[in-house]
């Protein structure tokens, strides 16, 4: 199995490191030609969604990646990656891939002083360490979206079809269970 990791900006190296730990090969995606090598799943990392959204379009990656996701390639978005997948970003007219029927609120816990880590229940896994960095939350969802985790009644992880999103960063911890959960989703196809 090979997982493509969008590597335009942000915490992509952490995802690659976690994949390495599990012995899964990865490809860093920076240019359209990086998509020529076959891959089975896609990770959209944390970072700044404004930066990634812009670079995706300017470097001609937007269309081919959108096509891959629409064709059913399993995709996991962490933090900024979740914003890239959402159908609606509260208070903003620009969306990115807009393939997942959720609306998200950026920087929902405020600035860096609002960043925190905690332990929380993730459906299908159990208690997990969760690290939120200037994190977004999921506001509204379509009825077909399954909520996988909440924190203080805020929705922070969800699944829809072949898409997984987490507002927190499992790749910043040593715990690889969410990654394994995602690989399981991809393997089941």
């Amino acid at each position: 199995m090979t997982v493509g990791v969008l590597a335009l900006q942000g915490g992509f190296a952490e995802h690659v490191h976690a994949l390495n730990k599990l012995g899964v090969s990865s490809i860093e995606i920076r240019r359209p030609k990086d998509l020529k090598s076959p891959m089975d799943a896609l990770i959209l990392p944390g970072g700044e969604s404004t930066v990634m959204g812009r670079l995706l379009r300017e470097l001609d990656l937007y269309r081919p990646l959108l096509d891959l996701i629409r064709q059913g390639m399993p995709v996991w978005g962490t933090c900024a990656g979740m914003i890239l997948l959402a159908n609606e970003v509260e208070g903003e007219k620009d969306t990115h891939f807009a393939v997942m029927p959720i609306s998200v609120r950026r920087n929902a816990f405020g600035r860096q002083l609002g960043s925190f880590s905690c332990s929380g229940l993730f459906t299908g896994i159990g208690d997990l360490p969760m690290t939120f960095i200037r994190a977004p939350i999921i506001q509204k969802v379509n009825k077909n979206v399954q909520i996988l985790a909440t924190h203080d009644n805020f929705r922070v992880a969800a699944r829809y079809d072949t898409m997984l999103v987490t507002a927190f960063h499992p790749e910043l911890t040593n715990d690889t269970r969410v990654l394994q959960y995602f690989l399981g989703m991809a393997n089941a196809l």
């Binding site: 900006q9 970072g47 910043l172």
Partner: peptide
């Protein structure tokens, strides 16, 4: 301290 280093990690490549 960890959370603060984590924010810097999210700025990488930028």
């Amino acid at each position: 301290n960890t959370l603060n280093k984590n924010l810097a990690q999210m700025l990488k490549g930028g």
